[in-house]
Computed example of a mutant assay.
Amino acid sequence: MAKADVTRLSPPRDFRIVTGTALDPLELAELRAKAMRPSLEAAGRFDPDRVRRRFLDHFDAEATAAFYAGQDLAGFIVVRQMPDHLYLDHLYIAPDQQGAGLGAEIIRSVQEQMAEPTGQEIRLIALTGSPAGRFYQRVGFKQTGSDGIDDSYSWHPMSRDSRGNLG
């Protein structure tokens, strides 16, 4: 199975993109722990070592793109190629960058540069009750299920309306 090609992504506005072996997995794992902390604490499930370990145990540099503002890690994404869809495994934005549109720009890039050219659906899961679910719905994802711990979402290129807007 081919890999999802994150090198096709364009860096948003004033950010630079880093992919492949230039990535520092420990730096990414630390950002994941910081970004997930509020949601996991609210759910009574925050264990910083477990959060880092779960990311590092499955780290794949070829599926990962990090976004930097100067020398500071602003966020990162992991997109995996599955047999019939793209799986957005991780999207984390640094707390000081949240709310400024970076996450939406990254998602638009994945939609436009990875999913639309191939006609592939994008799927993901997000912690039930976390702000992530609302974010994904704002950028066009539809909730497709829930197991009480995680909610499932999907986006398909055909979900754009005739004016090109997400719907």
Score class of each variant (00 low, 15 high):
98 Q>M: 11
28 L>N: 10
68 Y>K: 05
3 K>L: 15
91 L>R: 04
138 R>P: 01
3 K>S: 15
48 P>K: 10
154 S>K: 06
61 A>W: 09
60 D>M: 07
10 S>F: 12
43 A>I: 05
90 H>Q: 14
51 V>Y: 07
165 N>D: 15
113 Q>L: 14
109 S>I: 00
110 V>K: 03
91 L>E: 06
1 M>S: 15
96 D>C: 07
161 D>H: 06
102 L>N: 08
53 R>L: 00
161 D>M: 13
136 Y>W: 13
71 Q>I: 06
70 G>P: 11
66 A>D: 05
6 V>P: 06
142 K>L: 15
145 G>L: 09
93 I>T: 00
158 M>R: 15
158 M>G: 14
130 S>L: 12
36 M>P: 03
148 G>L: 09
39 S>D: 10
99 G>M: 09
95 P>K: 04
43 A>Q: 06
32 R>S: 09
9 L>M: 05
56 L>Q: 01
38 P>E: 04
98 Q>W: 06
32 R>H: 04
120 Q>F: 12
3 K>Y: 15
50 R>D: 01
147 D>L: 11
86 L>V: 04
156 H>L: 11
17 I>A: 11
51 V>I: 07
108 R>W: 14
133 G>Y: 07
65 A>Q: 01
31 L>K: 07
105 E>W: 08
30 E>H: 04
17 I>G: 05
106 I>Q: 10
15 F>T: 11
162 S>C: 14
154 S>C: 14
94 A>W: 00
78 V>K: 07
70 G>K: 12
35 A>K: 01
154 S>A: 15
13 R>A: 15
109 S>K: 06
99 G>S: 02
20 G>K: 00
14 D>E: 14
63 A>K: 05
65 A>R: 02
140 G>C: 10
45 R>E: 13
80 R>V: 13
139 V>F: 02
91 L>S: 07
16 R>M: 12
49 D>R: 10
57 D>L: 07
140 G>L: 12
131 P>Q: 13
108 R>G: 09
68 Y>V: 03
143 Q>H: 07
147 D>Y: 03
130 S>D: 09
136 Y>A: 02
160 R>N: 08
102 L>I: 04
132 A>Q: 03
132 A>I: 08
53 R>K: 06
106 I>V: 14
166 L>V: 13
139 V>G: 07
7 T>W: 01
76 F>K: 08
31 L>P: 06
44 G>V: 00
82 M>Q: 14
4 A>W: 05
69 A>N: 10
86 L>D: 05
154 S>T: 13
25 P>D: 06
102 L>R: 06
104 A>S: 15
150 D>P: 12
50 R>E: 12
8 R>K: 15
25 P>S: 05
67 F>Y: 10
129 G>V: 04
105 E>G: 03
89 D>G: 03
92 Y>V: 06
89 D>M: 07
74 A>W: 00
4 A>E: 02
65 A>H: 00
27 E>Q: 03
143 Q>Y: 04
129 G>I: 12
102 L>Y: 08
117 P>V: 09
81 Q>L: 01
152 S>C: 13
